[in-house]
């Protein structure tokens, strides 16, 4: 028998969180891919209501090593549009269910809402220091989310996700009739498109850090916990 490790199994994620998490992984993958496929066939960003090839752009992919024609050849907006809308709907329903469910069982309040003292700058400094040194929480501390997890999850769920949906909707021609005010709120149709892209980059950044942290903290244990719900909690002693 192998060395006996000190630790025990705890229940970490409820089944709603687990199911919604993996549906979101699928949605995010497709939304990002299909978004890129569309963007490649119009690889510039503008500000205001107006923007077209030849108009003053605030971002041009051609300045980053890919000409318009090269980008166009890589893109496929028919596929992109079909799958972007399909997965946007799945994404929307998935997150409405997720948010509704976990508001009701107080998951957000119990596990994600920062506790008193957590937002104090000494604590933030301390936790940031642990993060930067890639020190992984052990024992009781590993049972709950740390303050940066809490804040990033809350921002992603309650700020970036709604922002993606609304800035996406503000690009749709039907909304010039349904709610032109919404388009104006973003500063114009092209501004909505640009902010949609910037918000995408923030989400990609989140995913990169999130996945990186999963590997730092033990990929097998964390991925297993997100699939089965069971998490192996190491105790403070060295394993």
């Amino acid at each position: 028998m192998a060395l006996k490790q000190s630790g025990n199994w705890i229940h970490r994620h409820n089944y709603n969180v687990r199911i919604c998490h993996w549906i979101n992984v699928l949605c995010f993958t497709y939304l990002l891919l299909s978004g890129i496929m569309m963007f490649l066939q119009f690889p510039e960003l503008y500000w205001g209501d107006v923007g077209f090839r030849g108009y003053e752009a605030i971002f041009k992919l051609s300045n980053w090593g890919l000409t318009w024609e090269e980008a166009d050849a890589l893109g496929n907006r028919q596929w992109g549009r079909n799958y972007h809308f399909l997965f946007a709907w799945i994404f929307l329903f998935n997150n409405l269910i997720y948010v509704g469910w976990n508001l009701r069982n107080q998951h957000f309040f119990k596990r994600m809402w920062p506790r008193r003292g957590e937002l104090h700058k000494d604590n933030l400094k301390e936790e940031l220091n642990q993060h930067l040194h890639l020190r992984v929480a052990k024992g009781d501390a590993a049972k709950k989310y740390n303050v940066f997890q809490k804040l990033s999850y809350l921002i992603v769920i309650f700020v970036l996700f709604p922002f993606m949906v609304i800035s996406g909707v503000a690009q749709m021609p039907a909304f010039t009739a349904i709610s032109p005010e919404l388009i104006d709120l973003f500063g114009g149709r092209q501004s909505a498109r640009t902010l949609h892209a910037i918000s995408t980059l923030l989400l990609v950044l989140f995913v990169v850090i999130h996945v990186f942290e999963v590997f730092v903290a033990g990929a097998t244990n964390h991925i297993r916990a997100m699939i089965t719900g069971k998490y192996y909690l190491p105790t403070k002693e060295k394993i």
């Binding site: 569309m38 119009f42 209501d49 107006v50 923007g51 077209f52 907006r77 498109r193």
Partner: peptide, 8 residues
């Protein structure tokens, strides 16, 4: 509004 992305 063009589906490709431009508007004028």
């Amino acid at each position: 509004i063009c589906e490709q992305g431009w508007s004028a």
